[in-house]
Design a protein around this nucleic acid. Structure first.
Lengths: 123, 123, 123, 123
DNA sequence: GTGGTCTAGACCACC
DNA sequence: GTGGTCTAGACCACG
């Protein structure tokens, strides 16, 4: 549970949870079948309320990224690498491509964007 | 005032106004010195309250895109094309950088993003 | 919340709030991390609408004096005493500089103003 | 009529007029008995409406700085140098002294304030 | 006629 | 419970 929460950030806490855990699942850091700690534990460890944790879990379950086994807890869904890639594309890349196209329309060229990408990865 | 508002959208009305008018100013569609219609007129025409209009105007003034003249109304700021380019870049780049950081958090690495950028510019 | 509002004053209500609360934060009377009462409560207690309270809070957040935590309320920003001193100076000095510029416009010269300064420090 | 108006400034136009003309009267630049141009002329030359000019004249007359001679126009009041000094003090210095005392209470020392004064006169 | 401020009340997202 | 957004209406300062 390598998670960092900024309680004062504009992004809601439950969304910060979704983003970070989804990233760990899609990157393979959290492997399929791997169990997640109980939500109360997560809440306590992060110093936040149970409510945003519960909501994050719910939304990830709805997205098919985790599954709840009644009485046993939540587990990372076991996805074929194909499905995993597809999810990755859907969730991450689509929005980025849209944003890049917007910039393209506003007159930025390829090299300028790549420059920004590099800058983001340096900071 | 070529503006379309989606009252049901998840983006607040004032933000929709900011986005669309800013785009028109930065693209030159709304030229410097050009007067904007009174906020109450805009509100009436769009079928919304004055509040979101006023807030949009305020934020654009804070961003230096428009100026208010007491008792006369609001006008598009007269910016040298240099300043305008700079503002355009700042505003466009800021959003893009945010999106890239999101992808970074989600586990995409630099090369993958650059690949997507290239794909966007080919299509 | 030691605040006094003069509804008839020429200074707007939201500005009176900003002035008084900012002074309390900068003087340490309201310590960093300390929670502010809910804006609706403040409004009720002062017998005013929520609007000016909200606006005051917004401007103080923009100035980095307070932070909003979603669903939890607003808190005095935790600033290192260095930062706090800097903010204090900025805020105090800005007002003074404005006043001095006014005097400059009114025809006072540098020596006359310095004379007044000295007189203030003697009495 | 050495006057500069900033139509987009926060300070109302009529107040800008009052400030600048009062400064010229108090500094002796506009001597007692000296005639002021007709308000319509002033308005035209400054590219502003007659309304703020009229209001500025009214307030300066109320302050005893100018006098209207029916059918002849407005003239700078003829004040003994004593009266003039007194007005100067009342109008300009009182506010400044108050502001300086506020800064003194907030912990600024004499040298810091003199430094700020110098900076204001350099810019 | 313009924007600036304020009131009173509502619904929603988040914790 | 908290703040965020919005509506509908009012009064005032400014030009």
């Amino acid at each position: 549970m390598n998670i960092v929460i900024s309680p004062a950030a504009e992004e809601p806490i439950y969304q910060q949870l979704i983003d970070q855990i989804t990233a760990q699942i899609l990157s393979g850091e959290l492997a399929g079948g791997c169990g997640l700690p109980p939500i109360r534990t997560v809440a306590k460890e992060l110093g936040i309320s149970v409510i945003p944790v519960k909501r994050a879990w719910e939304e990830m379950e709805r997205a098919g990224l985790i599954v709840t086994m009644q009485g046993k807890g939540c587990f990372v869904a076991e996805l074929a690498s194909e499905q995993l890639d597809k999810k990755r594309d859907n969730i991450i890349i689509e929005k980025l491509a849209e944003e890049i196209c917007r910039c393209k329309r506003m007159g930025l060229n390829k090299e300028e964007i790549i420059e920004i990408v590099k800058r983001c990865y340096e900071s």
